[in-house]
């Protein structure tokens, strides 16, 4: 979420969490530089990718992940209709079941945020 300009956004917190996970891994696994970070972000995860990239650049400055390449893999939203049990791709949380029109839809995928792996040296 970006409110336009430099004001607050939770992507900055998420970027800080990414760095924290990287720094913890660096201590456990003994690496000194990160070249690439692969994130998996769900389409329904309420994350603005550009804000996350901006936040990542800011919080990694001066860290072992400075200038690391950020690769974001977007996973598609998935829903299941609670009325007719149909599974279908869900692009937004307000969508109805394409089969029966019910809004009683459970999100079954594409709402997570994970750091998958790192390329390190």
């Amino acid at each position: 979420m970006c409110f336009g300009g430099k004001t607050a956004m939770h992507e900055m917190s998420l970027a800080e969490n990414v760095l924290q996970i990287i720094e913890d891994a660096a201590q456990q696994q003994g690496f000194a530089r990160v070249r690439t970070v692969w994130l998996e972000i769900g389409q329904l995860a309420c994350v603005e990718q550009e804000s996350l990239r901006f936040g990542f650049d800011v919080v990694t400055r001066g860290s072992i992940a400075e200038q690391a390449r950020l690769e974001i893999i977007e996973t598609a939203g998935q829903g299941r209709c609670e009325k007719c049990a149909q599974n279908f791709p869900l692009a937004a949380l307000y969508e109805a079941c394409p089969e029966c029109g019910s809004y009683d839809v459970k999100v079954t995928g594409g709402d997570g945020m994970r750091i998958k792996e790192l390329e390190v040296e």
Binding site: F31, G112, R114, V120
Partner: peptide
């Protein structure tokens, strides 16, 4: 950075885990 070989570290961690 030194010219050194890179390796892949698997993490699979939720960003909100903490």
């Amino acid at each position: 950075s030194d010219v050194s070989a890179s390796r892949i570290v698997k993490l699979e961690q939720d960003l909100l885990a903490k």
